[in-house]
């Protein structure tokens, strides 16, 4: 894929801008981040997007490498997160997609946004509902990942009990409204939707923040 080049007012600040690059001010206006935080995220994005394929776009293998230190390890949940970050569904995460999606993981982001994102994560087949079989599939995947052993009947019991709490209209699947009610009563179910690192992103990547020309 090709790359476009742009430069700021100073030639020494010239930087390569990958396909899908969007101006930090635009992204800051749409997300939980400040302009300097978006710039710091661009430093992170560059690091990830050149880790294997050197094209300035985050591929699934690079996403896995960042999470697991290996590009080979398949993981149902990581692959679901990648799929949802890839808003254009073109197989890569562009910078704007990266920032907009990470914004939902900001500790200060709206709980309703986190709940909506998690709902899409768990709606494996994209039917608009979380079905009992999907939930069972995810519990089994987690058990496989963690080497924990539970009998089939124990898994069924856990899934049935959860559905008995969440499926208030008893139709065997969870709709977005039932899900939102469920997470209000069980906020720990959204624990994976907050990333404390995002509160200190300019501290985590101080080199870029130091050079930023933008005042927030």
């Amino acid at each position: 894929m090709g790359c476009a080049w742009s430069s700021s007012s100073s030639p020494s600040r010239r930087q390569r801008r990958a396909q899908g690059y969007e101006e930090p001010a635009v992204l800051a206006a749409e997300t939980s981040f400040t302009v300097s935080e978006v710039e710091a995220l661009y430093e992170l994005y560059n690091k990830l997007s050149y880790s294997i394929f050197k094209d300035g776009l985050i591929h699934k293998e690079e996403f896995r490498l960042a999470l697991f230190r290996t590009s080979e390890r398949a993981n149902l949940f990581a692959d679901r997160v990648f799929h949802l970050f890839d808003l254009k569904r073109n197989g890569v995460i562009e910078f704007g997609e990266f920032v907009r999606s990470l914004s939902i993981f900001h500790p200060k982001a709206l709980v309703s946004d986190k709940a909506a994102f998690a709902f899409k994560l768990y709606d494996l087949r994209g039917t608009g509902y979380i079905e009992k079989e999907e939930l069972r599939e995810m519990v089994v995947a987690l058990l496989d990942e963690s080497d924990l052993c539970l009998s089939d009947s124990a898994v069924d019991e856990i899934v049935d009990n959860t559905f008995s709490q969440a499926d208030t209209n008893g139709d065997g699947r969870l709709d977005p409204r039932e899900w939102e009610e469920f997470v209000k009563k069980n906020p720990t179910s959204l624990r994976n939707m907050s990333l404390p690192y995002l509160q200190d992103i300019t501290t985590t990547f101080p080199s870029f923040a130091t050079h930023s020309e933008v005042n927030d």
Binding site: L48, D79, S146, F182, Y197
Partner: peptide
């Protein structure tokens, strides 16, 4: 058991994006 299935799956390492922020 009173375990909540969504609490269980939220523990997946696949959701732990903090790896992106750590130097390898």
């Amino acid at each position: 058991t009173n375990l909540n299935a969504f609490d269980i799956i939220s523990l997946s390492s696949g959701f732990d994006l903090s790896g992106m922020f750590e130097d390898k």
